[in-house]
Amino acid sequence: MSEIKYVRGDATVPSVKGAKVIAHVCNDLGGWGKGFVLALSRRWPEPERAYRTWHRDRAHNDFGLGAVQLVRVEPSVWVANMIGQHGIRTGSKGVPVRYEAIDTALARLADDVIERGASVHMPRIACGLAGGKWSRIEPLITERLIKRGTAVTVYDHGEAAG
């Protein structure tokens, strides 16, 4: 079994050959405007547009915690919008991150990336604005993706995150 590969760089520019999925965590409120999504939107308009449509039509689709939406942005690149955050602010109910939802989303993502023969690229998902702890996220990635043979690269932009 391999391990998660850690590199410095931009997760929106994976420098490997073959099919690639850029995975990130979204909230369940339809909000898109802070954090990693800004980098995605600078490169491609499609993930934001698809996410907003998915949220707007949620009464008729699977939008909700644990859901995954794959959006093709280049011939061999997809963005995975994973719903793993309840709300957008830390408050009386704690941080927005929902580990169970991220686990479910990663399990669903695994089937898609295996089908495509894709590698997965991501920032330290759910550890910024969502308030998650990498020590809880990393084992989920290992269990759901690495153990199923999917190559995963985690990008630290600039200073290494903790």
Rank of each mutant, 00 (worst) to 15 (best):
I4K: 02
K5F: 00
K5N: 09
K5M: 14
V7R: 08
A11F: 15
T12A: 11
S15D: 12
S15M: 14
I22Y: 10
D28H: 11
L29W: 02
V37S: 08
L40C: 03
S41E: 14
R42S: 11
E48M: 12
R56K: 14
D57V: 04
R58V: 10
R58A: 12
A59I: 10
D62S: 11
L65P: 00
W78Y: 08
W78P: 01
A80E: 02
I83P: 02
H86M: 13
G87W: 08
G87F: 03
G87M: 10
I88R: 08
I88W: 05
R89Q: 13
G91C: 07
V95M: 10
P96H: 04
V97R: 00
Y99V: 07
I102C: 07
A105K: 00
D112W: 01
R116M: 15
R116T: 11
R116E: 13
G117C: 11
G117M: 14
A118Q: 01
S119Q: 15
M122H: 05
P123R: 00
R124G: 10
I125P: 03
C127F: 05
G128I: 05
K133A: 12
W134I: 05
I137H: 04
R144I: 11
K147G: 01
R148C: 07
A151W: 03
T153S: 09
H157M: 07
E159I: 01
E159S: 02
E159N: 03
